[in-house]
Design a protein around this nucleic acid. Structure first.
Lengths: 252, 252
DNA sequence: AGTGTTTATCGTCAGGAAGACGACTATGAT
DNA sequence: ATCATAGTCGTCTTCCTGACGATAAACACT
């Protein structure tokens, strides 16, 4: 194939973000309301065009900062600095996915601790944290009984892929700590697993597992009683990124 | 961001293929020689532009067929039809990755049984199966002592990512059977794991593991003595795609 | 002060899976 | 006949998990 600029079709390239967090025991994703057609007024994943001089991960980090104020956590950075975990998820390029033109979207997955209200260009009503369950039930009804339109474009598919990635990745990595503040208790970490997987875990076995895995958790010395009950030890995420043997997700 | 065709920069979108197979106890990848600048004469991964009306996976399947004659294995197809396994790997979009223009490449990973010689536009000298170890040792020397130039573009990085994906994925899935012919023995499957991981596995424990995992292997009734020694039972890949518990990769 | 509730943490026990390795079987090669 | 090669079946120990009892330390009541 000789080099000929007219020999290939031009594409628009965007990044879309699946930003997940755990709020009130539920796995939630960031959704923004579309201000213009197509899908005007519908909820969608945050995202935008990749600029001319940007790498894909830079574009994703920029969009994440614009939508949430979060700094992306550079994978090569030393320790937890309250930045969000950010990784590439997958790329979606169906010719019909955007009715306006040919758009290829490189989806990224971000995991963040529970945050205050989101902001989308300063307008709070155009951005929200919604339980992924609610966003994924296409054409169903929300908690107040109001009808819920499915996400714009192929964003339901992207969100589902991102959720599945997060669910499987916390099995064999220490990624669940990305949902936690810099210091957290074993119980808080367990509630992250329970929210992401949607199951109940035995507190005693969970405690044995995470405290017994070298490099997973580092005690900070402090204790807290945030959750009521006996004070719990505080931990930071340890350096280990891979969990071996993995945390087992209970059968359905 | 209002819709304005001049508001976003145009990109070229390509697919690149990491095609892996196991030959003579070594994990090998398909490499093609570049016929024109940049990197003229250097080895590269096969790939090409995505067409205007094609999905990304269609483009990858088309390139795979053009380079190897393999049909891609439709994930929804019933059983092993000697087609190759094909899945999306990751997307690479560094602004500097192609000196000619802004190119975003959606890399795919293909796993195939051992094949006859490759063909690249009918010219055998411009395509070959090379051990991944050899392709990845940047600026080293090949088996005959000749100097080896690193792969073109960022293809060494892409190949490394593909190899790592394959290595980790055969742990918890039945994907290793994609390297095998339709009927194979337990020993042949073990040699696949050994080649991909670069380790020796205990034949007895391996046999117990794979034959004891329900749905992984289905005996066909036949036996063979391809490898010398006592005749071995022949198996097909069973319907199970997930291995639970996984096959454990030995420590380094 | 006592009682109940909540959460954290330690311990025990049985079952399952994996690593190490012995033993036996069925071929072809010498 | 003997050896080398590969496949297959067992055994034993060790590690990990799931199930669950028990204790500890806080708070909210009465």
């Amino acid at each position: 194939m000789p080099y000929d600029p007219s020999a290939f079709p031009p594409f628009a390239v965007t990044v879309d973000l699946v930003v997940l967090t755990v709020r009130r025991h539920a796995l939630c994703a960031l959704a923004v309301r579309r201000g213009e057609p197509p899908f005007q007024g519908r909820w969608a994943l945050p995202g935008g065009f990749v600029r001319d001089d940007e790498d894909l991960s830079q574009a994703a980090a920029r969009e994440l900062a614009e939508e949430t104020g979060l700094r992306a956590h550079d994978p090569s950075a030393p320790a937890q600095d309250n930045g969000a975990h950010l990784e590439q998820l997958a790329t979606y390029g169906d010719p019909e996915r955007d009715p306006r033109m040919r758009v290829v979207s490189v989806a990224h997955l971000a995991l963040a601790p529970d945050l205050p209200a989101p902001r989308a260009g300063g307008d709070a009503s155009n951005a929200r944290w919604a339980p992924v369950e609610e966003l994924l039930q296409q054409g169903g009804y929300g908690r107040e009984g109001e009808p819920v339109a499915p996400l714009a474009f192929d964003h339901a598919r992207i969100l589902a892929d991102g959720v599945e990635r997060a669910r499987s990745k916390i099995e064999y990595s220490s990624l669940a700590t990305a949902f936690c503040p810099p210091e957290f208790t074993v119980g808080e970490l367990r509630r992250v697993y329970e929210a992401v997987w949607g199951v109940a875990l035995d507190p005693r076995n969970f405690h044995r597992k995470v405290t017994g895995t070298p490099g997973f958790l580092v005690p900070t010395g402090g204790t807290t009683t945030r959750q009521g009950g006996r004070p719990a030890q505080l931990f930071r995420a340890g350096g280990a990124t891979l969990l071996n043997p993995p945390m087992l997700r209970p059968e359905v």
